[in-house]
Design a binder for these strands. Structure first.
Length: 255
DNA sequence: ATGGCCTGCAACGCAGGA
């Protein structure tokens, strides 16, 4: 089984890239973030014509998540239960016996922003819910844009990013809290080349200079981690014309 | 050099991203 996550920064703009990527890589499930589309404007016909189903939770202008899958997505869950949030950032469903949870973690803007407090509270609620989900679903994958670079090796210039949003210690602690709940960072299950990132700023020729951060992740329950045979970032779409600023992250799970 | 770019909205520059 191949599962993947991709922050597309507007599905409207990126639909051609998504369709091309589906055709090339044929994932069993692809989690999307920042669709920036109301549900009524979701391009379901195009997705279905590509051989995929879709469930989605969107809003105008901001946020928005979706799960594309070849087989049906069962028992969909929208948002974190008991956590009131206008922002469409969470979508979960069971695909081929795997509980797939697609998340778009708040950015936080800066550590002295109100949005940073919202981010930390959001992560706390996510972690509490995740523990319950793990108890219900031993085969669980948490995929998405976490907006956290877990370690200095996930940052092109750790010194300049030290203490900044996406890299601050409370955020990294929240990330470790998810691991402590029983999840593994699929990317770090394997030897990886240095300087692998999943996001590069649109400015400063950041992609060409590989000035990036690894903030998009696939976390796996123990059962799935044991069956995981590979995890990588696909930089390909980031080099296309009019790209998303994020690249897809892909994991292979054995039977 | 502390900004540069991209998206959506509905502007006639803004908010937000990261």
């Amino acid at each position: 089984m191949k599962i993947a996550t991709w922050n597309v920064n507007s599905l409207n703009v990126r639909l051609p890239h998504v369709l091309a990527w589906l055709a090339e890589h044929q994932p069993d499930a692809l989690c999307l973030q920042e669709t920036k589309l109301e549900d009524g404007k979701f391009p379901l016909a195009d997705i279905e014509a590509a051989g995929y189903r879709a469930i989605f939770s969107g809003q105008k202008t901001y946020n928005g998540v979706a799960i594309l899958s070849r087989d049906s997505a069962e028992a969909p869950q929208f948002g974190i239960p008991g956590f009131a949030d206008e922002q469409k950032r969470v979508l979960a469903a069971t695909v081929d016996g795997v509980r797939v949870i697609c998340i778009y973690v708040p950015n936080g803007q800066s550590v002295d922003s109100d949005k940073y407090g919202y981010k930390l509270g959001w992560l706390e609620a996510l972690t509490a819910w995740l523990k319950e989900e793990l108890a219900r679903h031993p085969r669980l994958a948490l995929l998405g844009d976490f907006n956290i670079a877990p370690d200095d090796r996930d940052v092109h210039d750790p010194k300049s990013w030290e203490g900044q949003v996406l890299c601050s210690e409370p955020e990294r602690q929240a990330f470790r809290g998810l691991l402590d709940a029983g999840l593994k960072d699929a990317f770090r299950l394997f030897d990886q080349p240095e300087k692998i990132y999943s996001w590069w700023d649109y400015r400063m020729n950041a992609f060409r200079r590989n000035m990036g951060l690894r903030i998009d992740h696939i976390l796996l329950s123990q059962a799935l981690a044991e069956a995981c045979s590979a995890c990588r970032v696909d930089k390909g779409p980031r080099a296309l014309e009019r790209p998303s600023d994020h690249a897809p992250v892909v994991a292979e799970i054995g039977d």
